[in-house]
Simulated scan of single mutants.
Amino acid sequence: MIIEFEGEIFRWEAREDSAWFFTSVPPELSEDIREIPRPYRGFGSVRVKARVGGSEWSTSIFPSSDGTYVLPLKKAVRDAEGLEDGGAVVVRLDVLDG
C-alpha cells in the first residue's frame, strides 16, 4: 500500500530537551493502515519506506493517542529537505507490513 499526504511537522513535547520531530498520518489514511492484517510489532509500529522530497529511508510509523499514526522525521532528512518545526511536509509512505 502506498499513501501520500501533506502534514505539519511537530516536536515531541514529552520532554523539553527532545529533538524528535514527527508528522501525523491523516485520520482516514491511518484507519486504512490499521485495517491491513499484519503481525503485531512492538508499540504497534508498522514498517514503512518513507520519502520526503529527494530523501528516502526505512523506518516505522507508530500509533498515537489520537488514533493517527506518526512518522518520525530524522535530523538528516529535516536538514536535507529544509524542514522546520510547524512547517508543512509532503510525504509518500510505502507500507511494508501486511
Rank of each mutant, 00 (worst) to 15 (best):
G42D: 15
V46I: 11
P37A: 00
F5E: 08
R47W: 02
F10E: 01
F22K: 00
F43D: 03
R34S: 11
D17Q: 12
I36A: 07
E4T: 15
W12P: 02
E31Q: 12
G7M: 05
K49W: 00
Y40R: 14
E28H: 13
R11N: 12
E16Q: 14
E13Q: 14
E35D: 14
R38V: 02
I9T: 08
F43K: 08
R51M: 06
E31I: 06
R34N: 03
V46C: 07
S24A: 15
E13W: 08
F22R: 04
G44R: 12
D32H: 06
Y40Q: 14
F10C: 01
Y40A: 14
S18N: 02
E35R: 15
D17A: 08
G44Q: 06
W12F: 15
S18D: 10
I36C: 08
E28V: 02
W20E: 04
V46N: 04
P27E: 14
R41Q: 15
V25P: 05
E31G: 03
E28D: 13
K49V: 09
A19K: 10
W20S: 07
E8S: 13
W20V: 07
E4L: 00
P26C: 09
W20L: 14
S18H: 00
A19H: 01
E8F: 09
R47A: 14
F21N: 05
W12C: 11
G7Q: 07
I9R: 09
